[in-house]
Simulated scan of single mutants.
Amino acid sequence: MRKWKTTWLDRPLVGFDTETSGVDVDHDRIVSACVVRWGGGQMTEARNWLSDVGGMEIPAEATAVHGITTEQARAAGRPAAAVIEEIIAALAGHSDAGLPIVAMNAQFDLTLLEREAARYGLRGLFGRSVPLVLDPRVLDKHVTPYRKGKRNLAALCTYWCVKLDGAHNAEADAKAACAVVGKIARRFPWLTSVDLGDLHERQVHWARAQTADFRRYLASVGGDVDLTPFDWPLLPAPALPGDVR
């Protein structure tokens, strides 16, 4: 009898998404977050958090995106340090079990989580585990490099025929990101033949090249080029005053 070889797609994926007070990983805060175990022939399990954002104000621009006000966060949110600790513990537990972390634009959510950990004197995810990350944006751009249009989660869901219920809700976005990765891997099955560790490292190089290519394109059309140091899945820490790099 022929035995079918199992791949990482036959096991659950662990989706991670945050809604935040802004887009600056060094200064903004996690407002809400979700860690979801998805697929692998198992029941989907989601764990959600709402933070009091450490007493910070949530700008109106951020509330317009995710719908969470400062008043709601302070009234219903739990202490930020406890929320960050629990998120990291949940992700580290899944990572230690050999499950990949799926995060759309991973360098944003994962870097912000590390900065939040440092803010509260906690050990970050990358100090507790060796997470292997799958980023649907990086994968999509690698396998369909010449497709026109946006590459945000909503656009990826449309292209890969994934239903997105309630965009900019951490749970909905985390589940959708997992579903997009699943669709990409099924259409390009060679991805599932690559060891997760190797696939993680390939994404490091793909993400760097994709960002460099985009910056060259912007420069060629006279656009504003973001020269902020980039890496994946974590952005470099900001230079300290007097630090020469």
Rank of each mutant, 00 (worst) to 15 (best):
W4H: 12
K5A: 07
T6G: 07
W8S: 03
L13D: 11
F16Q: 08
E19D: 12
T20Q: 00
V23A: 13
V25G: 02
H27T: 13
T44A: 14
V53W: 01
G55F: 05
E61G: 06
A62I: 12
H66Y: 08
T69R: 10
A75D: 12
G77L: 11
A80E: 12
A82G: 00
V83N: 02
V83A: 00
E86I: 13
I87Y: 05
A92Y: 14
A97T: 04
A103H: 08
N105V: 05
Q107Y: 03
D109R: 05
T111L: 06
R115Y: 06
E116N: 10
R119S: 01
R123G: 08
G127Q: 08
S129H: 08
P136H: 00
R137H: 15
V138Y: 01
L139K: 03
L139W: 07
L139P: 15
H142F: 13
T144F: 12
T144R: 07
P145G: 15
Y146H: 15
Y146P: 00
K150P: 03
R151A: 10
L153F: 01
C157A: 06
W160M: 10
V162F: 12
L164P: 15
A172Y: 05
A174R: 04
V181P: 10
K183H: 14
R187F: 10
P189S: 07
L191T: 13
L191F: 12
T192Y: 10
S193W: 11
D195V: 10
D198R: 14
R202V: 05
H205I: 11
W206D: 01
A209V: 09
Q210A: 07
R215P: 02
Y217T: 00
V221G: 13
L227M: 07
D231Y: 11
W232K: 03
W232A: 07
A237K: 13
P238G: 03
P238A: 11
A239W: 11
D243H: 08
R245G: 13
